[in-house]
Design a protein around this nucleic acid. Structure first.
Lengths: 222, 222, 222, 222
DNA sequence: AATGAATGAGTATTCATTCAT
DNA sequence: AATGAATGAATACTCATTCAT
């Protein structure tokens, strides 16, 4: 049980008075903020509560992040923007067919992001974008546009090899995006509150959607 | 005691003679509230603005609805009931192929619902369901489940005629549902706030999605 | 002891719960604000304290004045701007010589404004203008510029009649303004805190200053 | 134990050998604080900024001065002492007429003091005296009273020679003092913040005021 | 039934001051 | 002696809700 830790994210083990660990703080705050933003949304999350959950005082939060909006942006950068870049790398070297790549991408997306607390940010964004245009703009730049490019590349790959039909690429992107976003929205809104409501099994859902989309994109002759 | 659609709110029973004006009040408030909730979300809508738009004073609002939360519930109840049932009865008698039916259904859905203020309710439900489990439950029963059944019928029709592949019908439903819901969410959140953000042209979007989905469901041999 | 009063300014006699007297409120708030602004300055005056002294809640203050700055502006309009306009009227019809008018004007200024709580606003403005540029600008427009014009008119009258020398009118204005402002500053800063400090007797002070200034402006031949 | 001008602050006695650097600290802090207090006033000056400008950390500031208030007092004490005495010794031997002496004195005052950062202290004293009675008292003794005596001497000289009228000397002093103080106040408050505000050209201002005051004091026959 | 004046709890952000290192 | 991370009290302004009329 070594004393120095690279910021164990869990709520800070009893911060006996002034603690002084500059390195760890931003990570702890970011983790607390992610939890609360996902749980309550942006507007309803109080800055003080974020600080409390990170085991620091209100003032300390603003020592690291100049405003609640900047805190949110940092959460997005930390937990989402990176995810997309990672994905870019992997997809470049995928060995299989483009249909398989569609399957792979959708499942990966789910496992690495959708099935994660971080995906709550996407739900939050859809819910509150209208009230926080600046954040929406930021999210567009950091997440949506790169995400679109990623999917677009995949579809273009399939079209280039002749495996996929010639489709309106720019909008065909949504045939991959929509099912995933729908699943994320569902998970963070409908699921977990409606006893009688339909439960979606993510893996089954993804298989069916990927199958239909891949079919839908594929060339009939192939 | 017929179940009037205009939602007689509990507080206003008053069997007076011909005070038609007063009967109208809750309706006007509900309409104003719908507009604003859809436009700004629950938290960001101020009670006073609702009252103003309905042409009454703030006090009057609380005379009819004991709290903002109850107002919200009333709005959702009022505007959701019967959304699905009547509009799509005609699908049962559609003459064309099932692919065409998928196209038709998606475009109809958009024109009759998605492109309507009422679709704001769906966005709002997805956004706020977490905070109103009781409403989410209600929405499930009244909107989602009937909607699913409707789509399921269409897919089963295609499978029965051999036009569609044998797919996991229950989940294939989402291949139609997700694109529409995604479009609605997009319209009510991302659109209209991000200068650099992608604008989705609904008709182009629907054509592409319907095309891919229909393709995706179709039998290769056909 | 009639019940209806035109806003008895004194701290409001025991406001037994919700009181409801819209007409009186702004006056009471303005009076309380004047007191506190003069006593503590603009920045150091807390909105809540103003409300308290007026016998209302914090919320009520903001019901009548949208911000602390607007409250301040209202105080200026109410207590100062009017003073100047009144003075304009009287000076137009002054029967005596211009030297006498200078004496008269300076004494009037003192009695109607300088010797009043309201003059504390001028001191405040000199003290805090740098930190509240918008207020400074407002004060310039509403008080300083009209005040200058007033004095300028008087000097021009004397020059026109040949009683006064031809002087740089625009800057000669300050020979009347400076002594008065100095007295006001003195009263609100040095006086009342320095046991051993010089006390200025206002009337004696004004007589001497008016005498010297009038002499200074007068034509040697006259 | 000579009374060094660089204000040995109580906390820093430390009779170490040759730590010259440390002796300099309070002086640097005092200089930085002077700048900022003059520029922004007491309340609006942040302790951290003072420390920064002095090139030390916030903690260090509080090492030397137990509070912001004490820092302020130290600044005033440091920069006010000896302001008057040395600068105007020469007035005693002025060769010209008393009218010329008035002109000379006012212009000197401006150039040697008013047009200097140090004059900010006077503005600041006028502004904040109410909150620091002890300092106001100090300022009275050190600055105001000697200043008065100086001016009084000049006026008496003119009266003795018959050049000036017999006036109430004690109060006639203000006819010289007020214009200068007014100019200093104006420079430090109204100037530099109001686009539409009147700008005073110091030299033109001083000429006009000195002219009027000298005229005002002069014997008509002369 | 209707009003609208009044309330006060609630929240992001700042900054003098402390104190472990 | 010096640091700078941490604190928390302080403050303008908002808005759902109440209630006297």
């Amino acid at each position: 049980m070594p004393a120095t830790v690279t910021a164990s994210v869990e709520t800070a083990e009893r911060p006996e008075k002034r603690e002084r660990r500059k390195e760890a703080r931003p990570g702890e705050l970011l983790a607390a903020a992610l939890d609360l933003f996902v749980e309550k949304g942006f507007a309803a999350t109080r800055a003080e509560e974020v600080a409390q959950r990170a085991g620091v005082s209100k003032g300390t939060l603003f020592l690291y992040f100049p405003s609640k909006e900047e805190l949110f942006k940092a959460v997005v950068r930390e937990h989402i923007a990176g995810t997309i870049k990672d994905a870019f790398g992997e997809l470049q070297t995928f060995p299989g067919t483009s249909s398989e790549l569609v399957h792979f991408m959708m499942h990966q997306w789910w496992e690495r992001y959708g099935n994660t607390k971080a995906s709550g940010i996407s739900k939050l964004m859809m819910s509150e974008a209208g009230n926080f245009p600046e954040l929406a703009e930021f999210y567009q730049q950091e997440v949506i546009i790169p995400g679109h490019q990623l999917i677009q590349k995949v579809i273009e790959r399939g079209m280039a090899s002749g495996e996929f039909r010639k489709v309106d690429v720019e909008y065909a992107v949504f045939s991959v995006l929509a099912p995933i976003m729908f699943l994320i929205m569902w998970k963070h809104s409908m699921s977990g509150c409606c006893p009688s409501g339909e439960k979606i099994e993510p893996l089954r859902y993804l298989s069916v959607q990927a199958d239909i989309v891949a079919h839908g994109l594929r060339n009939i002759t192939s």
